[in-house]
Simulated assay, not measured.
Amino acid sequence: MTRICVAGGTGQVGREVVRRALDAGHSVAVLSRNPPPAGSSANIGGAEYFRADVTTGEGVAAALAGADVVIDCLEGRSGKARKNFADGGARLLAAAQDAGAARAVMLSIVNCDRSKYAFYRSKAAKEHVYELSGLETVVVRATQFHSLLAMMFGAGSKVRVIPVARGARFQPVSPADAAAVLLETALEPAPVPAAGPRHRVLNLGGPESKDMADFAREWQRATGVKGQLVRLPLPGAMGRYLREGLNLVPEARHGNETFRGWLENSADSL
């Protein structure tokens, strides 16, 4: 049995990692700034929850005590969390080394180092921290999640418009598929000493790549929501990232759940 610490184990991918690790018979510690209360639906039975904050270091050592591997699903989307995202990664890795963990695996975003979008730049900065760590580290770069598209379509539908970014294609992946790859990577046999690199980057893409409008039509069929598809220009760094196809990794179609399949499985929460 492996002791796995899932940092950010209450988010959409982190929860899936926790469930899968427990189902496989592993011991799981969840590091979160706001652990769910015992008995709540968000608190997964069998996991140990620790209140910890990587931006300050408070509680991190206790959460990592005895961990064999660390899976980092933390996010830092705005404000102080984004500003301190890379530093938080350094604190997490230092604590992992002190705890004797053998490997750390980080969830990131495909081609984040080629974008000037602030959130993606913070991901790239944290990747660099992982690269320089003394631990064996792996960065799993995923394409955007199915939920991002659903959120965008849902937001626009409130004013009877289904927004479609002009010139954008997507290759979305499900959180469950991302969790499966993170866990599999974390539990891989250790390489022979000095036989391989101490840091690796893996790409993870969804099973299909389509124009954003095609995904919008699938979302409408699944939800029954009416609205006019409107192609809109997306300015700035994110628009450039999408127009250049940097969100696509056609050579890394590892996911199994299509957008349509995810919509069917998520019908109750859409």
Rank of each mutant, 00 (worst) to 15 (best):
R20P: 03
L22D: 10
H26C: 08
V28R: 13
V28L: 11
A29K: 07
V30T: 10
L31Y: 04
L31G: 02
S32P: 00
P35T: 04
P37G: 03
A38H: 01
A38V: 08
G39T: 05
S40D: 01
E48S: 11
R51A: 15
T56M: 12
T56W: 12
G57K: 11
E58T: 13
A61R: 12
A65Y: 04
G66K: 10
A67F: 09
L74A: 05
G76N: 02
K80R: 15
K83G: 12
K83E: 15
N84H: 14
G89V: 14
A94E: 15
A101T: 06
A102G: 15
R103E: 04
A104F: 05
M106A: 13
L107I: 12
S108V: 04
N111D: 12
C112I: 09
S115V: 02
Y117V: 09
A124T: 06
K126C: 14
G134R: 11
G134E: 06
E136V: 09
E136Q: 10
V138M: 02
Q144N: 04
S147V: 03
M151D: 11
A155N: 06
A155W: 06
G156A: 07
V161L: 15
I162E: 07
V164N: 03
F170Y: 03
P172S: 13
A178M: 08
T185V: 06
T185G: 06
L187C: 12
P191M: 12
V192K: 15
A195F: 14
R198Y: 11
N203I: 00
D214V: 15
F215G: 09
A216P: 05
E218S: 10
Q220I: 06
T223V: 05
V225G: 00
K226I: 00
G227N: 08
V230K: 15
R231V: 07
P233V: 09
G236P: 07
A237R: 02
Y241V: 10
V249T: 07
P250S: 10
N256T: 02
R260N: 03
R260L: 09
W262G: 05
L270Y: 07
